[in-house]
Write a protein that binds this DNA or RNA. Sequence first.
DNA 1: AGCGATGTTCGCCG
DNA 2: TCGGCGAACATCGC
Length: 260
Amino acid sequence: MPELPEVETFKQYFESTSLNKQIKNIKIKDTRILSIEENIFINTLRGKKFNSVTRHGKYLFVECNSFFLVMHFGMTGDLEYYRRGEEEPKYSKVLFEFTNNHILSYISTRMFGKLDITDDYKKYINKNRLGPDALTMSYEEFLMSLKRRTTNVKTALMNQRIICGIGNIYSDEILFRTQINPLTKINILQEYQLKELFTNIKEILKYGIRKKGNLATYSSKLIIPHRIEEENCPICHTPIKRYEILGRHGFFCPTCQKEN
DNA sequence: AGCGATGTTCGCCG
DNA sequence: TCGGCGAACATCGC
């Protein structure tokens, strides 16, 4: 279930379970999840320890003896740390077995995740032309990233090359909070709207992290719990509208989020 | 039993 | 070369 808040939660989980333990063995249950040749992947990591985790957008970079394990979770990724002998999690794709008899499972139900190795995560970010991390970017970086873009706000927020970390669900919430219609062209936003958008990106993502990405616990004053057709806006009670964009479904309140 | 899904990438077009 | 757009990808649960 990973957008930025979920991936940040995975980072914390990884840090609290899997750092500084020797990797005894690695089992690849499905090589399609690897962006790199299987033997290289295994030989790079076996016998080493994970030292630290950096997050950029929806990506995790796990430092391991001057190399980095790159983790992306797609739409249905997860991590689970468990004791040897306990049941292997369903849809495990890669198992990192530590010498302490515990195993970290990288789970990907729908195979949309990716594991890779890079020797420099900043180079990896540049090569893939990822935008600034949505949680830590400055207002200047945010503006710079939007420069010369003409697409609509919803698409811009979800484009990882513009801003890294926001997906379909959180972009709905950010636009709802900012009271911007999702189809508004990004280049016609007023300065005050850009400022509010920037502030709300941070606030919504921080809220998500505080809630550990557990959508079921989100306040009913947000639009997230109402992303269902025929639900009413929690502010003005107008029926929420569903629309299609980029082959995905977005939701907005036609009253609170008027076109500019 | 068909559809939809918290994501990314590729190919086409201007 | 770049940006925008739509289709494709894999697979499971509702």
